[in-house]
C-alpha cells in the first residue's frame, strides 16, 4: 500500500483518483476479525472520544475556577456504625464493576468452548452486577441531591461546576451501564436458546468488548473525578 501511494503521488492526478477507486472497491478486508467485532471496536473508539471530551471539559472547569473544589473524599463518604469512611460507596462500586468484568471474560471463554449454559449464566451474573452498580449509583445521586443539596448549577461545598460535571459524567456512564445490562441480558437469552450454535459465539466477545469498555471508562472516572 505504501508502494502504491508513492507511485500514485508521482503520476498524474487522474491516476491517483483511480488508485482511490481501486482501493475502496476491491473487496479487501483490512481487519481480519468478524465484522461485528471491528464495528464494535470502532464504536468504542468514538465513545472514547466522547468520554475524553467530558473528562477534559471537567479538567478545564476545575482548573479555571478560583473557588475551591469540593473534596470528593468527604462528599462521597458514608457513615458506617458512626464512623465516616471516605469514598466507601465508590469503592464498592469499583469492586462491583471489576467483578463483573471477570465474569464477562469467563463468559466469552465458555462461549468459544461452546458451553452455552455456562456462558449464558455468566452473562446474566455480569448483567446482575451491572444492575447492582446502577442501583448504587441511583442511591448515590439521591443522597447527593436530597441530603447534600448538590445541583448542576451549584452546591453548598464549593465550586458550582462540581455538580454539572458530576451529573454529566457519571450520568452518561450510568446510561452506558444500563444499556449494557439490557444488551447482555438479550444476548444471554439468545445464547441460552441456542441461536448461535451455527453462527458461532463471537457475539459474546463483542458484547464483552462493550462491557469491558464500560468498566474501563469507570477506571478513568474513578481516578480523575473521585480520587484526584
Amino acid at each position: 500500500m505504501a508502494h502504491d501511494a508513492t507511485t500514485g503521488a508521482a503520476g498524474a492526478s487522474e491516476a491517483r483518483w483511480e488508485t482511490m477507486v481501486t482501493d475502496w472497491s476491491s473487496d479487501k478486508q483490512t481487519f481480519r476479525v468478524p465484522w461485528g467485532k471491528a464495528m464494535m471496536w470502532i464504536f468504542l473508539l468514538s465513545d472514547t472520544f466522547i468520554f475524553s471530551c467530558f473528562l477534559t471539559g471537567y479538567m478545564n472547569v476545575r482548573l479555571s475556577t478560583p473557588v475551591p473544589w469540593p473534596n470528593p473524599s468527604e462528599v462521597f463518604g458514608l457513615e458506617v456504625f458512626g464512623v465516616n469512611v471516605p469514598l466507601l460507596l465508590i469503592g464498592i462500586m469499583t469492586f462491583d464493576l471489576i467483578t463483573s468484568s471477570g465474569t464477562m471474560a469467563l463468559a466469552v471463554n465458555f462461549g468459544y468452548r461452546r458451553d452455552r449454559g455456562r456462558a449464558a449464566a455468566l452473562m446474566f451474573i455480569t448483567a446482575a452486577f451491572g444492575a447492582i452498580f446502577v442501583g448504587m449509583q441511583a442511591f448515590e445521586w439521591t443522597k447527593l441531591i436530597t441530603q447534600e443539596g448538590i445541583r448542576p448549577w451549584g452546591n453548598p461545598m464549593g465550586a458550582s461546576q462540581f455538580g454539572a460535571t458530576f451529573f454529566m459524567i457519571t450520568g452518561f456512564h450510568g446510561l452506558h451501564v444500563s444499556a449494557g445490562v439490557a444488551y447482555l441480558s438479550i444476548v444471554a437469552m439468545k445464547v441460552l436458546r441456542g441461536d448461535y450454535e451455527k453462527r458461532g459465539y463471537e457475539i459474546v466477545e463483542i458484547a464483552g468488548l462493550y462491557w469491558h469498555f464500560v468498566d474501563l471508562v469507570w477506571v478513568f472516572i474513578f481516578a480523575f473525578f473521585y480520587l484526584w
Binding site: T30, F31, W41, I42, L44, L45, T48, F49, S52, C53, T56, G57, M59, N60, V61, R62, L63, S64
Partner: peptide, 21 residues
C-alpha cells in the same frame, strides 16, 4: 486503528490545561 487515534486527545488535553490556567 483503535489505539492510535486517541493519542490526538493529548493535544486537546494540553490545550485545555493551558486554557484552564
Amino acid at each position: 486503528a483503535i489505539l492510535g487515534p486517541p493519542v490526538v486527545l493529548l493535544v486537546l488535553i494540553g490545550l485545555m490545561a493551558v486554557e484552564g490556567d
